[in-house]
């Protein structure tokens, strides 16, 4: 079982972090993982994307050209990577940032106003976590428990409030992602 994923958006939106958390959680589950960012001279505001692979077998190519999952945090990301999603694959996107959405009918599309939902939870910083929750809700690439363990070890002492909001955000995402 191998899941290939692309996360894309503007630089600074945290798309690299989404990929990283998924790779980290996959590793925690004993799977093979790889995380390959696009990198460029612009530190903020440019386009950023990351390929993440989670697999039972050793990973050959870390480059993903036909993703099973695309998480898009802006419209250009859907325009660029949407056509490459494997038929039957999953697209997760933020309706607030992607006004045109995606017109493919052979894939599963899950969308929500992520920024608004994040504000309801109480922090703009949890947009990523809602998106990860949506992925977990729809696919079995990683388990919620692995995310919870990772976030807890990372944030428990540093920022318990953010930890709680992150977990709420993931659960919210999982509800939205339920088939």
């Amino acid at each position: 079982m191998k899941t290939e994923m692309i996360c894309a958006g503007f630089g600074g939106q945290g798309v690299l972090t989404i990929g990283r958390f998924i790779a980290q959680a996959g590793m925690r589950e004993g799977k093979h993982v790889s995380w390959l960012p696009s990198y460029g001279p612009e530190m903020r505001g440019g386009t950023a994307n990351v390929s993440a692979v989670v697999s039972d077998q050793p990973i050959a190519s870390p480059i993903v050209s036909t993703p099973d999952i695309l998480v898009a945090l802006n419209q250009p990301s859907i325009d660029k990577f949407g056509p490459q999603i494997r038929p039957g694959g999953v697209l997760v996107y933020d309706t607030g940032m992607c006004p045109k959405g995606c017109n493919r009918t052979d894939i599963q599309i899950i969308s929500a106003p992520l920024t608004e939902l994040a504000q309801e939870i109480g922090s703009n910083r949890v947009v990523n976590m809602i998106a990860i929750g949506m992925v977990i809700g729809r696919t079995n690439v990683i388990k919620y428990e692995s995310m919870e363990e990772d976030l807890t070890s990372f944030l428990k002492d540093r920022d318990p409030d953010l930890l709680e909001k992150n977990l709420i955000a993931i659960k919210k995402g999982m509800e939205l992602g339920k088939p």
Binding site: L36, P37, P62
Partner: peptide, 10 residues
Amino acid sequence: DGMLGQMMEP
């Protein structure tokens, strides 16, 4: 190469 430098793996 840049790919190996930038990519994360366990």
